[in-house]
Design a protein around this nucleic acid. Sequence first.
DNA 1: TTTGAAAGTATTTAGGA
DNA 2: TCCTAAATACTTTCAAA
Lengths: 148, 148
Amino acid sequence: MIDNLDKNIINALTENARLSYAEIAKDNGVSPATVHVRVEKLRKAGVITGARTTVDARKLGYDITCFIGIILRQAGDYPTALKKLENLPEVTEAYYTTGQYSVLIKVMVRNIDDLQKLLIERLQVIEEIQSTETLISLQAPIQRSIRA
Amino acid sequence: MIDNLDKNIINALTENARLSYAEIAKDNGVSPATVHVRVEKLRKAGVITGARTTVDARKLGYDITCFIGIILRQAGDYPTALKKLENLPEVTEAYYTTGQYSVLIKVMVRNIDDLQKLLIERLQVIEEIQSTETLISLQAPIQRSIRA
DNA sequence: TTTGAAAGTATTTAGGA
DNA sequence: TCCTAAATACTTTCAAA
């Protein structure tokens, strides 16, 4: 089971993945070795799945983030459509959803031209896709993790 | 400017934030000190913004992830509405968007009951919100970073 | 800007409470 | 399970190229 120490470790590391075990240990009144043991346990249990450095996409030239809602022709088209979406590097996230759309994807592109090309030349040509709806994100004011 | 070494470092760290500089150095035929200098440079330039450990939300009891499209009463309501959304810890992401919705939020909750309560008791009571539309995510098959 | 070398920290293992 | 202590490894600084 996950106890309070585990939770504190998870919350600390989801905010800053490069925090040292030594520091987390100090904050929690345990030894660094204990933190090490707990993190290994959480990793083996699949609770902790990895760690990613976050970057400012604009500084890398990706000025536009958007969400695209996709409606598929048929429910059964999902596996094939997903494979095709995986081949588009601009697609950074995909969600299989109930409601409005069959699939919601998050896309990052350099500019409006690239977005238009992506939509027309590489998304709308996918035969399993019936239609798409684009939401351009102008700002992402909240970006945080759930608390353990 | 960002050269190839910078890009390789960014790509390595966005995949695994806990990779050692020593290892990245080895993969790129430079010294660990150089990797250190580059990472500091990227951090100071605001390209690298942080690092977060990723967790399996379900293992923490958050069984439901969903996106909620929000339509505000008036465009000018955005700043007030955002402040209210920030106070809901279940809201892990928010995007100010063009198109269909004024705001798109990502929400993580423990179960359908909690989702219903969130929607009815804490979202739909926000006076700036005219209506909401919920997309429940059943799967998130793609989760990756843009490449530098 | 990069490097090797030194100094300072952190991680990791292992034995004992 | 946790700790201390020791060994290993990594990060960080710095002077020189």
